[in-house]
Design a binder for these strands. Structure first.
Length: 682
DNA sequence: GTTAGGG
DNA sequence: CCCTAAC
C-alpha cells in the first residue's frame, strides 16, 4: 500500500500579473480608463473593470513564446506574474518549439487549428474599446526553466508602443493583449494579428449574440470553460465573476459569459483536464535548490537581487507554511514562499504585497469610450489608475506526496485560476478604508485625479457571492489591508471530498452579503466578536466568550470530488488555544481531572466542534509543559501565570489521585487537604 | 470510541 | 496536531 502523505503549501499569495502598468508619459496615454470621476463611473464599475482585467488576465491566452510562426502559441494563456517570492511560477514549458507552459496547454488544448479564433478576434479598429493591455514577458532563454515575469500594460488599442524596459538583458516578448475582446495575444507579427482578427467587433459590445457569432469565439470561451470545470466548477462556487450564469445575454463583453453556450463541445477536453488535474502521483523532487536556482538564475536575480540564492532559499524554507514533517520532502526549487512583500522585478510592490497603491497621474485620455486616443485631455476628468500588481489571497494546497511535480503545478495553477476566476473580487481601499458603497461615483468617493491617489488601493478579496459557505467574521479584514493578517485560502484538490461543510470560504467583510455564519463541524472558528449568543460561547458551560482566533479566515476549495480517499484527509489547520479556551480547559480539568478527556470535552467544549478530546488532552499536556518552563521559553499567546499555576496545581493533584488509585483503591478520602483544594476549585 | 503517549 | 497502541 502506498503511503499517502500530504503536502501543505502555504502561499502567502501570488502576485497576480500586474494590471495596468501606467506609463508615466502622457504620451503613452496608456491608462485610459473608462469612466470619469464625475459621476459616470461608479465605484462599482471601477471594481468591475478591475476584476475584468484580472479575469482576462487569468483566463486569457498566455503566450510564452517568441516563435511567431507558431500560431497556436499566440493563444496561450496569458502568463501571470506570480509573486516573486513564490517559487511556483507560471512558466513556459520546454515542450517542442513552443514554449507553451502547461497552463496554456491545459487551457487551450483545444486550439489545434490555427485560427480557432478566427472571426472571433477583435478587430482593433477605431471603435475598439480603449483597453489594451500589453504584456511584456521576459524570460530567461535558458530554456526549460525559462521563468518569466509578465507585466501587463493597459493602454489604448492603438498604442503599439511598448515599454522597452529590459530586464536583466533577457529576451523579451511583447504581447499585446486586448481586453474586452478575445484573449488574443499577439506575440509577433502584425499580420498574424490581422489574420485572426475578428470580423464582427460588435460582438464584443454589450448586446452581441454570442452564439450568433463565430465559432472561434465559441471555442475560445469553451476553453475557458474547461478551465473552470477543471479548476473550480465542481465546487460550484467559483466562477468567473458574476457572469457565468448570465449566459448569452451578457454577450462577449465578458467572454466568460458565453461559456455555457458551448457546453456541448468535446468532453474529451474536459476529461483530459480532469485527468490531468486528478493525477497525483508524486514522484521526484528532493534535490536542491541550487541547481534549480541556477536554472532560474535570471529570475532569481531579478527577483531577489539583494539575496544570494542560498539566502532566498533558506528564507523560503523558513517561511514556508508547511506544517508537515513532510517538510523534508519539500524543495525550494519547487516550493512556494510565504514571504511577504511581493518583490516584482521592479521592486516596487508594496512590502506587504497586499494592497498596492494606485497611482493616478494627471490627465486622462479621451472621454469618448470609443477608443479614440486623442492623446489628451477631454472634458471629463478621468482618473488614471495604476496598479502595480495584485496579490492573491493566501492559498493553501494540499496534495499527495505521490503526486507528480507536474500535477502539483497544475494543481496550483488550478487553484490560482479558481481563485482568480471568481473566488475573489476586487476591493477598493481609500486611505486605508474600504470603500463599500459600490454606487458612489469615484468622485464622490474621493477617487479623483486631483486627489492624491496614493491612498487608493486595491485588494483581492474573496468573492462571497461565489462561495457557498462563509465563515463570516464581521468586519474581519479579509481585505488584505496592509499588515492585516492575510486570509488563508485552502485549496484541497482532492481531499474532503464528501464533506459538504468542508468548503468554507473567506469571510465576507461586508455586511452586505450573506453573512451567515456557518458553524459547520468542519471548523467553526470561534466568533471573534463575542456574540454572546453564539454557539461557541457556551452559556452555562465553562467556555465563555472565546476571543477572536487569530487566523481562521480560510477558504477550502474542494476539488476532484471523485478522487480517491487514499488521498487522505487534509491536516487540520492549527488553531491555537485562546486564553479563554485555556481557562475553560483548566476549569474543566480541575473538576474532572485528567484522564477524562471526553467528559472535559463535553463539559467545556461541547460546542467547539473543532476541539476534540484529543486536542484537549494535548493542550493540557502542553499546558503542563508550558507551566514548567520559564516564561522566556514560552511562545505564542501568553497564558496568564495564574492559569498556569492552576494547571500545575490541578495536574499535581490529579496525578496524585491517579497514583493513589493505582496503589490501592483508596479514593480521595485520604487526603483531606487535596479535597479541600478541589472544593475551592469546584 | 477513549486514553495515553510519542512524534 | 497527528499517529498509534492499548484498552
Amino acid at each position: 500500500m502506498v503511503l499517502q502523505k500530504r503536502l501543505d503549501y502555504g502561499f502567502h499569495g501570488y502576485q497576480v500579473p500586474t494590471m495596468p502598468r501606467a506609463t508615466r508619459s502622457v504620451r503613452k496615454r496608456s491608462l485610459c480608463r473608462k469612466g470619469t470621476e464625475g459621476g459616470q463611473m461608479r465605484a462599482f464599475d471601477l471594481l468591475a473593470t478591475v476584476a475584468d482585467k484580472l479575469l482576462h488576465g487569468t483566463d486569457g491566452p498566455t503566450t510564452t513564446t517568441t516563435d511567431t510562426s507558431t500560431e497556436k502559441d499566440r493563444y496561450a494563456v496569458m502568463n501571470k506574474e506570480l509573486d516573486a517570492n513564490s517559487l511556483l511560477k507560471v512558466e513556459p514549458s520546454d515542450r517542442g518549439s513552443c514554449d507553451q507552459g502547461f497552463v496554456s496547454e491545459l487551457v487551450l488544448s483545444g486550439h489545434e487549428k490555427k485560427c480557432d479564433l478566427n472571426g472571433c478576434l477583435p478587430q482593433h479598429d477605431e471603435d475598439s474599446p480603449p483597453q489594451l493591455v500589453s504584456v511584456v514577458t521576459n524570460f530567461d532563454k535558458s530554456k526549460e526553466m525559462g521563468n518569466l515575469a509578465s507585466e501587463v500594460h493597459v493602454g489604448s488599442p492603438r498604442s503599439k508602443e511598448s515599454d522597452n524596459c529590459e530586464l536583466d538583458g533577457k529576451s523579451k516578448v511583447i504581447v499585446k493583449y486586448e481586453l474586452h475582446k478575445t484573449e488574443e495575444v499577439l506575440t509577433g507579427t502584425q499580420d498574424q494579428y490581422d489574420s485572426c482578427k475578428r470580423e464582427d467587433p460588435v460582438i464584443w459590445d454589450q448586446k452581441a449574440h454570442v452564439l450568433g457569432n463565430s465559432n472561434g469565439c465559441g471555442k475560445m470561451t469553451q476553453d475557458k470553460q474547461i478551465i473552470q470545470n477543471s479548476s473550480f466548477a465542481t465546487q460550484n462556487n467559483v466562477k468567473l465573476v458574476d457572469r457565468d450564469d448570465d449566459e448569452i445575454s451578457s454577450g462577449c463583453t465578458h467572454p466568460v459569459s458565453s461559456i455555457k453556450s458551448f457546453r456541448t463541445v468535446p468532453s474529451s477536453r474536459d476529461r483530459r483536464i480532469k485527468k490531468v488535474s486528478a493525477s497525483k502521483s508524486w514522484k521526484v523532487v528532493p534535490r536542491c535548490r541550487d541547481e534549480s536556482l541556477s536554472k532560474t538564475d535570471g529570475i532569481w536575480k531579478s527577483m531577489f537581487r539583494s539575496k544570494s540564492s542560498h539566502d532566498s532559499c533558506r528564507r523560503q524554507k523558513s517561511q514556508m507554511n508547511i506544517p508537515f514533517k513532510k517538510r523534508k520532502f519539500f524543495d525550494c526549487s519547487s516550493s512556494v514562499s510565504n514571504s511577504d512583500g511581493g518583490i516584482n522585478s521592479e521592486g516596487l510592490s508594496d512590502s506587504t504585497g497586499k494592497v498596492f497603491n494606485s497611482d493616478i497621474s494627471g490627465r486622462s485620455c479621451s472621454a469618448s469610450g470609443n477608443g479614440h486616443h486623442k492623446s489628451f485631455p477631454s472634458k471629463d476628468s478621468h482618473v488614471k489608475i495604476r496598479i502595480k500588481s495584485f496579490r492573491v489571497p493566501e492559498l493553501f494546497i494540499e496534495i499527495s506526496e505521490t503526486a507528480t511535480v507536474g500535477s502539483l503545478k497544475r494543481t496550483v495553477m488550478e487553484a490560482v485560476t479558481a481563485v482568480l476566476g471568481g473566488g475573489i473580487r476586487v476591493g477598493v481601499l481609500l486611505q486605508g478604508k474600504k470603500v463599500r458603497d459600490d454606487n458612489k461615483t469615484l468622485f464622490q468617493t474621493g477617487i479623483s485625479h486631483d486627489n492624491q491617489l496614493d491612498s487608493l488601493g486595491f485588494a483581492l478579496e474573496p468573492n462571497p457571492s461565489r462561495t457557498p459557505l462563509a465563515l463570516c467574521q464581521e468586519d474581519s479584514p479579509c481585505i488584505l489591508p496592509c499588515d492585516a493578517p492575510e486570509p488563508l485560502t485552502r485549496y484541497s484538490p482532492d481531499a474532503s471530498a464528501d464533506h459538504p461543510g468542508s468548503s468554507s470560504v473567506l469571510p465576507e467583510p461586508h455586511g452586505d452579503s450573506l453573512g451567515h455564519f456557518i458553524q459547520s463541524d468542519h471548523d467553526s472558528a470561534p466568533s471573534p466578536t463575542n456574540t454572546s449568543n453564539h454557539k461557541s460561547t457556551t452559556d452555562s458551560k465553562a467556555l465563555v466568550n472565546v476571543p477572536a482566533m487569530t487566523v481562521e479566515a480560510l477558504t477550502v476549495v474542494p476539488m476532484h470530488r471523485k478522487s480517491k480517499r487514499s488521498e487522505v484527509a487534509q491536516r487540520r489547520i492549527r488553531r491555537p488555544f485562546s486564553v479563554a479556551e485555556v481557562e475553560a480547559l483548566v476549569q474543566a480539568v480541575e473538576k474532572l481531572g485528567t484522564g477524562r478527556w471526553r467528559d472535559v470535552k463535553l463539559r467545556a467544549f461541547d460546542n467547539a466542534k473543532h476541539r476534540t478530546y484529543v486536542d484537549l488532552k494535548d493542550k493540557w499536556k502542553t499546558l503542563v509543559h508550558t507551566a514548567r518552563i520559564s516564561p522566556q521559553q514560552r511562545r505564542g499567546e501568553p497564558v496568564p501565570q495564574e492559569l498556569l499555576d492552576r494547571v500545575l496545581s490541578a495536574h499535581a493533584y490529579w496525578s496524585k489521585q491517579q497514583a493513589k488509585y493505582q496503589l490501592k483503591r483508596q479514593p480521595e478520602t485520604t487526603t483531606p487537604m487535596n479535597k479541600k483544594t478541589q472544593q475551592s476549585w469546584g
